[in-house]
Write a protein that binds this DNA or RNA. Structure first.
Lengths: 340, 340
DNA sequence: CTGAAAGCGCTAACAG
DNA sequence: CTGTTAGCGCTTTCAG
């Protein structure tokens, strides 16, 4: 039963050479004769040798492990990012250790600490809702652990970032609403602290202003998921105003919830009220009417984030933090009116 | 910049005690005086000590890391399983390293090998479509690496498993169709090799038989995603038969594709054709008409799978492989007719 | 091109 | 209750 571990020593003694030579052969060093190398490789295969990562890490101070912290893995967007991360990392022989902050700052901190202890070579992170500063991340930077942030980033941290131009995309979306004849346009956002919420609100404001429309603070709503649900907020909004042409939502789940309320009020979409979401969840395509939204390149974002991180790990000398802005796609479906 | 690593030795020398005592204190051993323990803890905090996992693993032959292999992380079902796994594992201080087989047997093999090399304490796996035997898993068992399989399992492997009773759930679904007056019921499955596909087909056949309905092999269709899409298959089916009362689909994505075709043929759902899916994806709730389906407890499945694995890791003596069958929930929505 | 020797940081006997 | 010693499996000087 208890198979003893095969080590470089075993290979060495079978071949009557030294462990160091075995190690060199296994790691493809130059200064090893081709025959020796072949013999070592062959013997390793025969013995079903599998290098011990822990021992190697202890020596080299590198684990080839990357830590990932996201708010919630089961969210469509994040699981797609993760998919991109995993595929790319594994193609370069890096492992990914995952953790979820569940939108809690303290969990985010704990997991980060855990990853430090596991000696992850680098960290990929998308911040929790609650996180409004980067002290915990600074501590890692002080320990020389590279970090790459994506989607939910903190601007004033000297690390690489991958984002989409939320403001521009929102501007474009709201501008489209205006061009299709909407004047009274509401914005339903999330926590005010959240980067994407701020950015998207800014794009909304900018579009109104650029088109000479007044900004009515009554139409700008922030719901944190705790005690102010989109459902309630929209209901209140509809009670408050009878003149409303459109609602621009922070994301698709909110838009979908809003859509239900609007339907219950027997308002026609898009004739009475237009609706736009953000993220392009699969449901948005199938829902009736199908939701106009902004698609974010989740998979590509993941891939870009790891590639940035690995680039930094492998060339620490030449590293300079950079911010990659990925393109979004505005997807016009049936919750918005046609352009004239 | 380059912060040197803080070790037990550092704590020891500051406190003028031995490293072993520090180690014992840190690991909560009994035989250490309370005062010493407190001092050690305090000093560890002060120095911002963080234990080196690699070194510990090298000594203890345990990594507190669990390897996960799933077909595709970005699929709703698997990302929810993963979420359950991650949360439970992290609550017990285990880390999860993820990998995706992308439905390829050879990738599954490679990732498993990688996890062996990383000395994962145990493996959680849901098989790829292509996998039809367990030789690669047997090799791990020979190395005494515990495995727990979930959802897509192999029956003849002596490991713990977590599944739902696919056959029973399908039986129930098809029986419901029959009770609502459907007689000619088609089944659209996936690859024939896939465990769930077989089980669900069996449930389908059983329901027909039990209710004295003939089994028409023409109505049983298997599409692998490669060259036979559900869309094509259903189109062919509709061309072939004009008498069709219902279609029972292997999963929701197939059902949703089928629904589109049925709509294009101007057939009314559920009046002309009833439809049932499996898995309960979020889209199924929002699609029009909303899809009758079977909900699988993904999160719970993940949680159960890790808990079985950790149980086995921590009590290897008393371990006996067990199979946990989780309950499904039949969700009646609007693609099926009402019971009389 | 190869070998000997040392040590990464930690824990587990063993001995007191 | 605590210290001493050894060694997990690997890589890396250094010396041939």
């Amino acid at each position: 039963m208890n198979t003893p571990e095969i080590t470089v020593k075993d290979i060495a003694s079978k071949l009557r050479i030294s462990p160091s030579t075995v190690s060199r052969a296994l790691n493809g060093h130059e200064d090893v004769s081709p025959e020796t190398k072949d013999k070592v490789m062959e013997m390793a295969r025969q013995l079903n040798y599998s290098p011990n990562h822990a021992a190697r890490s202890l020596r080299t101070h590198r684990t080839r492990t990357l830590g990932l912290v996201v708010p919630e893995i089961s969210k469509h967007f994040f699981s797609n990012v993760l998919s991109g991360i995993q595929e790319y990392a594994s193609s370069l022989n890096y492992s990914i250790v995952i953790s979820q902050s569940l939108e809690s700052f303290s969990m985010e901190q704990n997991h980060l600490q855990q990853l430090v202890s596991a000696r992850a070579d680098g960290i990929l992170i998308s911040l929790s809702n609650e996180t409004n500063h980067g002290e915990h991340l600074r501590k890692l930077l002080d320990r020389d652990i590279p970090i790459v942030m994506f989607d939910r980033v903190l601007e004033d941290l000297p690390v690489s970032k991958v984002v989409v131009d939320d403001q521009k995309a929102s501007f474009q979306a709201v501008e489209y609403l205006i061009k299709t004849g909407c004047k009274r346009i509401a914005f339903i956002g999330g926590l005010t602290g959240l980067y994407v919420s701020k950015e998207r609100e800014a794009g909304y404001r900018q579009a109104l202003t650029m088109h000479g429309l007044p900004i009515d603070e009554e139409l700008i709503i922030h719901c944190n998921n705790l005690n102010r649900s989109p459902r309630e907020e929209v209901t209140k909004l509809l009670q408050r105003t009878n003149k409303l042409d459109a609602i621009f939502c922070l994301n698709d789940p909110i838009a979908i919830e809003v859509m239900q309320v609007v339907k219950e009020w027997n308002l026609k979409i898009p004739e009475d009220i237009s609706l736009i979401g953000f993220t392009n969840e699969p449901t948005s395509y199938y829902i009736e009417p199908s939701l106009t939204t902004v698609s974010q390149p989740a998979y590509e974002m993941g891939k870009t984030a790891v590639s940035l991180l690995i680039e930094q790990l492998e060339n620490p000398k030449t590293f300079q933090p950079s911010t990659v802005v990925l393109g979004t796609r505005f997807i016009i479906r049936n919750t918005t009116r046609k352009l004239l």
